[in-house]
Nucleic acid binder design. Structure first.
Lengths: 297, 297
DNA sequence: CAGTTCGATAGGCATTGCCTATGATGAAAG
DNA sequence: CTTTCATCATAGGCAATGCCTATCGAACTG
């Protein structure tokens, strides 16, 4: 049984006339006659009582019409919903973001995203890299903003911007007198984030894999870390976008001698059908952050 | 878009596996692949995100699944309802009956109909012949029990039983002494029903087209007429099935010399698809009334 | 590296749906 | 009483559709 047959049924029932119903359906009258008869044979129920003059729905037909109407309506609904869904740049878009990026990046991109992709409902989801990748692979995220390297052949990514690292020092720290801080110097009393944060590994890598004081303390957030530094417990290395927050906390920032940094990427599944949305989101972010590495943001 | 396609969609969404979904649908895996792709092209929406290992419904798909399920369910409902409707001997059966027959025939056939056609819901509708024929032609009745002659090529009928007329006399009436009453004698002071009752015309015809006392009085029902006769206002002619009621009213009944009577028929539209039901109802009535003319009921 | 699994693709075949032309029937009109 | 008209049914031909088997290609497994 076909939705088309049901449409024919409804048309004949409504018009009580094969010719007019056929016109309404955009088919010929014989087509309608044949299809209605087939439907009657399929259901093994007489649907219309015909004479050369009149076509009247049987009571059986009237009992079926309600269901037929509902089925056709659901079919239309599918087409309508699909039409709304057609635009890959529309609808919910679940975007994972790592915690060392989210609080500083989101305020920057919120407005541009709204402007460039007004019907894309971006839902940020903050978690650490491994958790984000898990959710991404489980189809619980549409894309993620990460600062780590490539993650496997099942994922595709696009670099968005380079984010330099900065040395974060208490104002009274001896290094604060230098215009540029060497990574080795910073390493001596560096504080790092808890396990799982990619920034922890990156900071340790930049400073030669040596955990300092922070090795025993596990700051759960960059914000905590900044407060620790401001209070003079040590130094740290922060991503460039957190510069404003660090300065607000009364921390002295200095460029690193080796100009170390990380690259923020947007990642999505290779088979993701709405990759256009992921790319568009990436485009907006990249545009907003253009020239950031040069300090013009 | 076809209901079958929606079934395929639901199967793949449920199994998240083309091969198993194909088996569940009873088709080959390539068939499913092709049809799903066609559906995706029709809707212009990606429904599944495929890898060689996994098949995951997209969020778009999940929004459509509800509608798809509803449409398929309505389709199933149509088949189910049709299956119940298939039996022409089931369901509502609106049966017209003339007023001079209804009160006496219905009690006789009620039980046999229930027994022979347990799932046929017979709904009696009492009215005069012309009104019944109108309703019958307007598809507001499925059949009618009449005592008149053929009614046109658009209607078909089946005779059920012969109903003899009887002379109805007040006990003190001079004719009450005769074993048999001649129609001419009866005509002298005959009372007849109001216009529109077929029995009125039949009674007048039997008695030679002469309205007696009753010409000016318009008894609306046979019951009224019987009371008039019992009260001594005149004589009348009643159909055989009313004999019991007449005797209960204290009326003397006598056979007519010419053995006049009427034939009760069941009538339905020539194109009526449930003619089997009409014939079955007729059969039950004919069986119940078999031998009635000979007085064995 | 061979074997396995799974979805996609290709080619062939039967079915289906549609159209035009025509038939059949009953009703209205001349 | 015949003709004409309106209406639904039927027939034949054609294109589209759906399905199958066979095969491919990619990706995982031992």
């Amino acid at each position: 049984m076909n939705l088309r047959d049901l449409r024919y049924l409804l048309a004949v029932a409504e018009h009580e006339h094969f010719g007019r119903a056929a016109k309404a359906c955009g088919v010929s009258q014989p087509t309608l006659s044949v299809q209605i008869r087939k439907l009657e044979e399929l259901l093994d129920v007489a649907l219309f009582e015909r004479t050369s003059k009149t076509v009247v729905p049987t009571s059986a037909c009237e009992q079926l019409i309600g269901h037929a109407r509902a089925a056709v309506a659901e079919g239309e609904a599918i087409l309508a919903v699909a039409r709304n869904l057609r635009d890959p740049l529309a609808g919910r878009f679940r975007l994972g973001i790592i915690p060392t990026l989210a609080p500083y990046l989101l305020p920057l991109i919120f407005a541009p995203l709204r402007e460039a992709l007004p019907v894309l409902e971006v839902e940020p989801w903050e978690d650490q890299t491994t958790a984000l990748l898990e959710r991404l692979r489980a189809h619980e995220l549409d894309a993620a903003l990460l600062a780590s390297e490539e993650d496997g052949p099942d994922l595709v990514s696009r670099p968005l911007f380079a984010e330099p690292f900065l040395a974060a020092l208490p104002p009274e720290h001896p290094l604060a007198g230098h215009a540029v801080v060497s990574e080795a110097d910073l390493a001596r009393d560096i504080l790092v984030l808890a396990d799982g944060h990619c920034l922890r590994d990156q900071a340790l890598a930049v400073c030669g894999h040596r955990g300092g004081l922070g090795g025993t303390m596990r700051a759960a957030s960059l914000s905590t870390l900044l407060n620790m530094v401001a209070a003079g417990y040590g130094t740290t290395l922060i991503p460039g976008l957190a510069a404003g927050a660090a300065e607000d906390a009364g921390i002295v920032l200095r460029p690193l001698a080796a100009q170390a940094g990380r690259t923020v990427r947007i990642v999505w599944r290779a088979q993701f059908p709405r990759r256009a949305a992921a790319q568009a989101v990436g485009e907006v972010i990249a545009t907003r952050l253009r020239g950031f590495a040069e300090g013009t943001v």
